[in-house]
Simulated assay, not measured.
Amino acid sequence: MILNDYPWLLLPYQQLADGIIQNRAHHAFLIRYVQGSGEDELIYKLASRLLCQASVNLEPCLNCHSCQLFLSRHHPDFYVISNELGKPSIGIDQVRNISSKIYEKSQQGGNKVIWVKYAASMTEAAANALLKTLEEPPENTYFILSDEHNSNLLPTIRSRCFSYFLPIPTLEQSMEWVKKQHSQPYSDNELACALLLSENAPLSAVALLAPEKWQQRKTFCENLLKLLPENDYWFLADTFEHEQFVERVIWFCALLSDALKAKQRAGRFIVNRDQVPLVRLLATLSNEKINALYDLWLQARRQLLSVTGLNKDLIIYNVLAQSELINCQ
């Protein structure tokens, strides 16, 4: 919770915590973010300040019993609702279980904080159950709902919350921060590429630049260079674990987008700055083929992320076969 390690979070935290000091904090925060921009760190700090029973300043005191419990991750008045392992959504029973507890007196005699992670993944029944609590919140109870900026949350839920978008740092600020996190000798092009692939979210870029992960991306690009001239997308089937396919979709779609930019002579906006030969090769395809490939792979990603019970291998094999058909047209 030391936000000095994440300098771009200092102002957002101040803006959100200012209402706590003035005793006018909204009972429900909706925090939208680009994944990997420090959202968890900010929310933990905000929850810590809401639960602190001694501080009158922006910072939690870190010394009172409530702070000590929070630091040990055992605070009885801090509840987290999130997707259960292996399930794509938050169910109504999870919301009901928390709702039954928050109407009781807080165990530490202070505030209660409920954090709903990936709030848009609530089923409609779960969202409606939460809505009833948001409309008539218990005393000294605060809700923090969080999700990615492009997720869909019921308008009725949004209307009950104070909405806040967590800004990301500039590309230059992010590059300076990322350089300090890695001892690997990455070029500026590679650093910029990792950040742009991560929507300029610094923590996501650092994860992508981990040596093993960065090598996986380079290998994927090398394989594309081999298969494209032969139109042999099936070659990809054995080059990575299928659980990693969603990640490959993001990488491939970024390359396809770059190919369209190259065709429009907009090279300065290219994301994959370290893969210019591959981008140029993709740019030899027609606009229609590039757009068809983009739509095909993106649709597969949506299926894999949102639909349960589908055979993931079949989805992937279908994408590879359809990709070859598109290139044959």
Rank of each mutant, 00 (worst) to 15 (best):
N287T: 01
R302V: 06
N4W: 02
I270T: 05
N327I: 07
L153N: 08
K312E: 15
P7E: 08
Q14W: 04
L208I: 06
S66T: 03
Q299S: 15
D295L: 05
H182C: 11
S89V: 11
Y44K: 14
L209M: 15
R265P: 02
T284N: 11
Q184E: 07
N272P: 00
N189C: 06
S66C: 07
W234A: 06
P138V: 02
I316K: 12
L305Q: 14
Q322T: 03
Q299V: 05
S306A: 13
N318Y: 10
N311A: 13
A129T: 14
G36Q: 12
D18G: 13
E148D: 13
N311H: 09
L166Q: 06
Q299G: 09
L304C: 07
I81R: 11
L16H: 04
L131S: 07
K117D: 10
A126K: 02
E136W: 10
D188V: 02
I315N: 12
R273D: 09
R280S: 00
K117M: 15
A262L: 11
H182E: 12
M175Y: 11
P211S: 11
L10Y: 10
Q264E: 03
N128Y: 07
C161N: 06
V116R: 05
I168L: 08
N128L: 06
D313F: 09
N223L: 12
E124P: 02
E41W: 09
D93N: 15
F70W: 09
C161M: 13
V279G: 04
M1H: 03
S163Q: 15
R73C: 12
W234M: 04
L50V: 02
L224M: 08
I114A: 03
N140H: 08
L260G: 01
N231L: 04
S121P: 08
G38P: 07
Q22W: 06
E241Y: 12
W297T: 01
H65P: 03
E148M: 14
N111C: 01
L310K: 12
G110I: 01
Y6F: 15
E212L: 07
E243K: 13
N57I: 00
Q322C: 02
Y186Q: 02
V34D: 00
N291T: 05
F162S: 10
S146Y: 10
A292P: 01
Y164G: 12
L134E: 12
W214S: 08
Q107F: 05
R301W: 06
F235N: 03
K289A: 04
Q15I: 04
Q15L: 11
E41S: 10
P88S: 10
E243V: 00
Y79L: 15
P211L: 12
N200Y: 05
E288K: 14
E190Y: 07
T308I: 15
N97K: 08
P211D: 11
A201R: 15
N200I: 12
L236M: 11
L224N: 00
E39P: 06
E288V: 03
T141W: 03
D238N: 15
I98T: 12
S48I: 01
